[in-house]
């Protein structure tokens, strides 16, 4: 068990290394002069020189790499070109709304998608099953922001049930927090629910074919307990795996959702950075999101131990 945990933790190191190397090389190996591209169409030669200096592009590439890795190890993600503030500071300011939105979305997704997928698998071919499949193919097809605007149009503008845009911290009151986060959560959840319910359905369906399900039925066990005790627990590994992999999808969705609902989170930071060509911010956020993704998936890998006693080392 400890061997497995240790091995999984160690295995994340090369992946993080690859991410870091990738991000590092992306700027250096991009065609043309990245400093000029970042500076934009109306930049003067001094602007470009200043950016090149700021990004450390004048040094030999190995020196650049080690300086960069060194500062990265100290938690230094560089300085924003536009605001001249450290990227870490900018990230810290925007962290809370994104974390709130991600957590509400994750919870909402799991509460909705897992029972829905299980039901669809159990009654495969039924009306419920068809609805789940239809919902999931629809969820994969509608762009997040279009969905967001549709929800705003009907629920906020027409029915006036919920605020159109904005964000209230949970520390400013639970009521306003939920009123503001409800729509973004629903918007962001749809594609995630599509993904998770589909995977739940597929893996529960597969488990239901297994011999031990037949054994449980041969014992005279009720269908509900067959599903809960035998099927779902065995289907858990692929389900949590897809939730982990789906985090990447979620992060992409956060960027868009935050801009639709005007939420001052990391997604908005990305958007602003894109518009202002503030590359250090983009780079910092890529590293942050990737590492978070790797960590979450590490935790999920470790959770396999809990779901499946066969995993040892």
């Amino acid at each position: 068990m400890t061997g497995y945990i240790f091995k999984r933790i160690l295995a994340t190191v090369p992946v993080m290394g690859v991410v870091a190397l990738f991000v590092f090389l992306m700027l250096r190996l991009s065609p043309g002069d990245p400093a000029a591209v970042i500076a934009g169409d109306y930049a003067t030669a001094e602007d470009i020189a200043r950016i090149r200096e700021q990004l450390g592009l004048n040094e030999p590439i190995f020196v650049q790499f080690f300086t960069w890795i060194g500062s990265l190890a100290q938690g230094d993600l560089g300085i924003s070109i536009f605001t001249n503030l450290p990227v870490t500071t900018l990230i810290a300011q925007r962290l809370e709304p994104t974390i709130s939105l991600t957590i509400t979305t994750l919870l909402f997704t799991i509460i909705v998608a897992v029972p829905l997928g299980t039901l669809a698998a159990w009654k495969s071919g039924s009306l419920v099953d068809r609805f789940v499949m239809l919902f999931s193919v629809g969820g994969f097809s509608i762009p997040v922001f279009v969905l967001g605007y549709i929800l705003i149009y009907f629920l906020s503008m027409e029915l006036r049930w919920l605020p159109v845009q904005g964000y209230k911290s949970i520390f400013d009151g639970v009521g306003p927090f939920f009123r503001h986060i409800a729509l973004p959560t629903m918007t962001l959840s749809v594609i995630f629910i599509a993904l998770v319910s589909r995977m739940t359905r597929a893996s529960v369906m597969e488990v239901l074919q297994e011999d031990y399900i037949r054994t449980a039925r041969a014992k005279g066990q009720s269908e509900f307990k067959v599903l809960l005790r035998h099927a779902l627990r065995n289907a858990a590994v692929p389900i949590v795996t897809v939730i982990g992999l789906g985090i990447a999808l979620l992060i992409g969705g956060v960027v868009v959702t935050e801009s639709v609902y005007n939420i001052p989170g990391l997604g908005r930071l990305v958007l602003d950075a894109v518009l202002k060509r503030d590359y250090p911010i983009i780079q910092g956020l890529i590293l942050l999101f990737s590492f978070v993704y790797i960590l979450i998936n590490l935790l999920i890998d470790l959770s396999y131990c809990f779901f499946d006693p066969r995993i040892r080392y």
């Binding site: 991410v19 990245p34 790797i294």
Partner: peptide
């Protein structure tokens, strides 16, 4: 390992970065 690394970078952010560097 390279694919694992590539997979852990959120697709949209990666695309944004690539485009912002190359136009």
């Amino acid at each position: 390992r390279v694919m694992d690394g590539l997979m852990s970078i959120p697709g949209i952010l990666l695309a944004i970065a690539l485009i912002s560097l190359s136009g």
